[in-house]
Design a protein around this nucleic acid. Structure first.
Length: 413
RNA sequence: CGGGGAGUGGCGCAGUGGUAGCGCACUCGCUUUGGGAGCGAGGGGUCGCAGGUUCAAAUCCUGUCUCCCCGACCA
């Protein structure tokens, strides 16, 4: 991609109306743009990052047997009357000109349970795992912290259906593993903890994945011993770890990047979702649900991976794999840079090529701000070779084009 | 929803009653290119919105909307 034609403008300073680090960086660097409080546009470069997150999640969900579908965001109010959730305060209510009352989906239990009821009849149909990656709406009283808490966001929500409690429990554990794989893949593995949490309206308990950071909006109590945590909302005064009994729990601020719930038969009961077992008896389906907010995950990654000059994307999420800069305006440089660009592209490397008529300083500053892991420079100083520098290192080295290509491919393998 | 702060060109800001300004960005020209270049010439704003006071309002008064932060809330 030629940067001179890319819908990307960085800003000299962080937006004054944002205080949170993620919003400052992502807006200044041209990843997102705010429409109103808690509602953001993902600009082309931000959308690429989001798509990479989506891809990582999709791989894990498919590995866990998930089948992807897509459910509507417009829901009939009747389904919420059935579950008694029509009045929960985060729901956006709508009324059609035809007088029909609807709500905007904030989660999809009310939709997927009746859907599954239509097709599921026998124990032979179980277990079943369905998921989607789709837009949710929540009328938060106060949107805040940039893209960490928004009113419209893309979420992966998977719902599992089981005949037996034991089967559910096995899958619930499997999902914990899938979630920690995802956290590892997006570069949050070593600071994200499985956290015991409250269950909400339809569940006795739940588990969250909490990323520890000063700028978090949640509070957890962390056990260094078994690498798990307890959410402050259910933290016991006895002050010990429920997993291993460790008394030395550390209080930390954190961001909730994922949440999984045992729903038991709460929703199945409301919609009479049952199956016929081997003995020919009708029994309620046992359910679980498993959510991850994609934008919030992107915000959390930004909060963690940055320095005074800008963002440092993990290799799995970077919008482009290399940022190629040409410094100087000689025609020979231009030819050299274009050749480099073409060769990298031929090797299936994603290249953002800064071909703009800008000063060297501006290009270098922008590259740091945007935060692509590998920066390549072609200039009068590099002569016929290419400078390669990693965003997280201060030193650079000169290499031939073929060496550079090889090194980049190996880095992203 | 309670408390606090803020709305003036795309971005960041100054301007306390008398013709709307500055820096960056943008356009044109020339020179420049390893850490946000220089000189010259330009374009762009009903000062969030609505009322009111006044000869005169970005500025004073009233109302209202929006944004940010703290709290409450948070399937």
């Amino acid at each position: 991609m030629y940067q001179s034609h890319y819908f990307l403008k960085t800003q000299y300073s962080a937006p004054k109306n944002e205080v949170s680090r993620n919003a400052q960086l992502l807006e200044q660097a041209g990843f997102i743009s705010k429409l109103m409080a808690g509602v953001y546009t993902f600009l082309p470069m931000g959308w690429r990052v989001l798509k990479k997150i989506e891809g990582i999640i999709r791989v894990e969900m498919n590995k866990a047997g998930g089948q992807e579908l897509n459910m509507p965001a417009l829901h009939p109010i009747e389904n919420y009357i059935t579950t008694g959730r029509q009045d929960i305060d985060i729901i956006f209510h709508l009324q059609s000109k035809s007088e029909k009352k609807m709500v905007l989906g904030q989660s999809h239990e009310e939709i997927i349970v009746p859907l599954v009821k239509k097709y599921l009849t026998s124990y032979r149909d179980l277990p079943l795992y369905l998921y989607q990656i789709q837009t949710k709406f929540r009328d938060e009283l106060r949107a805040k912290s940039g893209i960490l808490r928004t009113r419209e966001f893309i979420m992966k929500d998977l719902y599992s259906f089981h005949a037996e409690q034991s089967d559910f429990e096995k899958y619930y554990s499997k999902m914990k593993k899938s979630y920690s794989n995802i956290m590892n893949d997006v570069g949050l593995g070593n600071i994200t903890y499985l956290t015991a949490a409250s269950g909400g309206t339809f569940s006795k308990y739940s588990h969250e994945f909490q990323t520890v950071t000063e700028n978090g909006e949640d509070t957890i109590h962390l056990c260094r011993n078994c690498k798990t945590a307890v959410n402050d909302e259910i933290f016991d005064k006895k002050n010990s770890c429920p997993e291993c009994g460790n008394k030395e729990m550390e209080k930390k601020k954190s961001i909730e990047v994922g949440n999984i719930f045992p729903l038991q038969s709460n929703f199945s009961d409301k919609f009479h979702l049952t199956f016929t077992d081997k003995q020919g008896k009708q029994r309620p389906v046992i359910m679980g649900c498993y959510g991850i907010g994609l934008g919030r995950l992107m915000g959390a990654v930004t909060e963690i991976h940055n320095d005074k000059d800008g963002i440092l994307w993990p290799k799995s999420l970077t919008p482009w794999q290399v940022h190629l800069l040409s410094l100087g305006n000689d025609e020979s440089l231009d030819i050299e840079a274009k050749k480099t660009y073409e060769i990298l592209k031929k090797n299936n490397i994603e290249v953002l090529y800064d071909d703009r008529q800008e000063s060297a300083g501006k290009k270098l500053k922008d590259a740091d701000l945007i935060g692509i892991p590998i920066r390549l420079v072609v200039s009068n100083k590099t002569k016929s070779s290419i400078e390669i520098k990693y965003r997280n290192k201060s030193s650079a080295k000169l290499q031939s084009l073929s060496q550079v290509t090889k090194e980049v491919k190996e880095y992203y393998q």
